[in-house]
Design a protein around this nucleic acid. Sequence first.
DNA 1: GTGAAAGCGCTAACAG
DNA 2: CTGTTAGCGCTTTCAC
Lengths: 389, 389
Amino acid sequence: MVRCSRWTLGGGGGPAAGVRVNPRQTELERSRRRGRGPRRPPRAARHNVLVTERRRTRRPTIVDIAAAAGVSKSLVSLALRGDEGVSDATRARILGVADELGYRSNTLARGLVQGRTMLLGVLLTDLANPYHTEVVAGVEEAADAEGFTALLAHGRNDRRRLEQQLDALLQLSVDGVVVISSWLDPRVLTEAARRAPVVMVGRPAEHPTGVDTVANDDAAGATAAVEHLAGLGHRRIAHIAGSRRPAARARREGYLAAMRRAGLAAEAAVHTIGDDTGRRAAAAAELLEAAAPTAVFAVNDLAALAVLDRAHVLGVPVPDRLSVVGYDNTGLAETVRPRLTSVDQPRATMGRLAVTLLLERLGGRTADRREVLPPTLIPRASTGVAPAG
Amino acid sequence: MVRCSRWTLGGGGGPAAGVRVNPRQTELERSRRRGRGPRRPPRAARHNVLVTERRRTRRPTIVDIAAAAGVSKSLVSLALRGDEGVSDATRARILGVADELGYRSNTLARGLVQGRTMLLGVLLTDLANPYHTEVVAGVEEAADAEGFTALLAHGRNDRRRLEQQLDALLQLSVDGVVVISSWLDPRVLTEAARRAPVVMVGRPAEHPTGVDTVANDDAAGATAAVEHLAGLGHRRIAHIAGSRRPAARARREGYLAAMRRAGLAAEAAVHTIGDDTGRRAAAAAELLEAAAPTAVFAVNDLAALAVLDRAHVLGVPVPDRLSVVGYDNTGLAETVRPRLTSVDQPRATMGRLAVTLLLERLGGRTADRREVLPPTLIPRASTGVAPAG
DNA sequence: GTGAAAGCGCTAACAG
DNA sequence: CTGTTAGCGCTTTCAC
C-alpha cells in the first residue's frame, strides 16, 4: 500500500465511542488520500503515467498482466493459480508477463473475496520470555507445513494491549488465533472464538467455552521434581511459589500433594515470590535463611536462578549443600553455573498441537478440546544427593 | 474469516512456478468454499438464515448495521468514523446498533479501498535474541503512538524464510516494514522498498539503496570497551570476534584501532568464534589458555558468557585475574555472576527511530537516511583493575 | 479455452 | 443531512 504520495504525522482525533474504529481516521487523514474518485481516467491512461514513475511503483495487478498478455483478467487469475482449463501456451505467456512485471497477489483482495486469508495470528504476552518464543517456533513450523503464514502480535505484558492486538488480528481476518498467554479474560476469548477459531496455549483459570486449550501437566511436573529430589535423599524440600496465576497454583498444589505422598508433608515449606527481580531475590534469601532446606523446587527457572544467585552470595555450594530444580527448562538452565535441573514442557509440540487443533476447528469440529501434555524432568548439575547432615 | 463451514487438511498441490501464489490453492481447496455464486439470494434472505446461527456467526457488516438502523451503508460508514455531517440522533442510533451487533470493521476491505492499512510489519531474524525483542519494543511503542499496529514476522534464522516473510508482509499491504536483521540481501531490500517503505535496523554489509538504516556505532562501542579496560590498567586485552557479519567486523576493527591508539597494538589478540555454543566455548578456552590476557572484550554478551564460564571452569577469578566486557547489554548481563560489564545499544530508541524514518518516507521523503546512534558502556562487576603481575 | 459480470466489505465523491 | 454510486484487486460462476 504505497499509493499515498504524502503522509503527515501528528493529529489523531477522537473517533466515535463504543465502537472500535481506526483511531486515526481524522479529517487530516482523509485529506491526504491519493487523489482518485469515481470519475477518474480509464485505466490505460493511468497506467501509462505510472509506468514512467521510477521509485515506489504502483503494484501491478492482474489487470496489468491481462493487458500486457492480451487476455482477460479472469484468465490471468486462473492461470496464476494453476487451474487446469488454461492452454499451455496462454499460461506460459501469462506467467512470463507476471514474472516480468514482478507481480504479487494482493492478500487483502484475495482474502476479501475468498473469505479466508491463510494467515494465522499468534498472540503472545511477552516476547522476552523464551518459553513463549519456543511455543511460537512450534506454531510456525506447523503453520508453514500447512501453508499458513504465522503473524505475531505482542501484548507486552499488558492485558489491555493484549485485547487490542487480538482485536486487530480478528479485524485482519486471520483464519485462526493461537493465544500464548493466560492473561486474557475467558469471556474475551469466547467472544473472539465466535469470529475465528482460537486455541489457548497455557493453563487458564477457567476454561473459556468455544476455545481449545493446550497445557502441560503442572502437577505431574511438580511431582517429578519432588520425586527426583526425594530420590536423592532430600527431605527438607522447599518450594518457591509464583503469583496466583493458574500454572503457578497447579505447581504449588502438585508440590504439596507430592510431598504428602512421599511422607514429607511435615517438611513442606512454601515461599511466595513476586514477578519482579527484586521480590524474587528477597524471597530466595528469606527461604534459604529461614527454612534452611537442602533442596528447592522453584516455580520457574527465573525463580530458581534467584535461588542459585542467593546461594552463591551466601557461599552455599550447589549442589553439595543445596539442590535446586527449576521449571520450563529455558535456555537459562543451560547457561548458568551450575547447569540447572529443570522440568521441561514440550513447547514446540504444544505449539504444533495448537495449530492442529485450529485446523480441526476449521474442519468443522465444534466440541472443545483440552489437551494436557506431560512434562519431563531434565537432570543437570544443580541437583545432587542430599548432604549427610 | 470464518465463513467456510468445512475445511480439510492435507493436500497441497504445486502451483504455477515462478510466480508466488497461495501454495494451497488446489482443487481440494477450491471445492471447500462456502457455497455462494453470483446468483445467490438477496442479502435480506441470507441474513435471516445467519442470524439464527449460534456459534461462529458471520461477522456483521455495515450493510447489516444499515439495515438494522434503517439507513444507508454510507451513512453508517460516516457515523462510525466520526464524520461531522451526521446528525446526532442518527449517529447515536447507528453506534448503538453497531455496538449491539458487535460490529468490527474489516481491515481487508478498508485497506483495499483506502490504499493503506495502518499496519507496520516488523521482520526479525531471531525471536529468541533479546537484542531483537527490545528493538521491537521500541518499534511497537512508536507505532502505537502513531496509531499503527505492529505485526511481527519471524525469519527463524533462515534467510529464505526471512525473504518469504518479507514477501508475505508486502502482499498484506503493510504500510511499512522494519527489518531487524542484517541477513537479507541488499537487492532484496531495495526491491521491497519499491513496494513499501523499508527501514533496516542493524549494520548492513552494503547500504541498500532506497532503504533507511538505523545502527549503533560499533567502532565507538569497541573503543569504549578498550578505553574502559585500559583505564583500569589492562594491557593484554584480547578480543573474541564474531563471524564475518558487518557488526562483528566493525567491532573488531574498532577494537584494533582503539588498541593502536592506546599504544597497545602489540598486545592485540583476536580470536574468532562461531555462532553455536560449542564453538563459542572452544574459542573461549583457546583464548584464555593461549593468549593469557588479563582482559577480554567480547563481540557480544553470549561470547562474554562463554568466557566467564570458561574462567569459572579454569578457576580464574573474575574480575580479580580476568576482566570481561560484553556487547549488547542483554538481560543476561544482569543475570550472570559476576554481573557483566557490557556495551549498551539504545535499542528502544533505535526501534522508535525506525518508525520515525518510516513515517518520513510515507510523508514523501525520498533521500536515504543512515542513522548511527552512540552506544554506552555499562560498567558492572566483571571488570576491575588489572592484576599487579 | 476464454471472456463477461458480479460481488467480497468498505470508502468517498456527488447528487439530492 | 442522507442516499446513490463507483470501485479497490481479486475470484468465481456462467456463457460463449
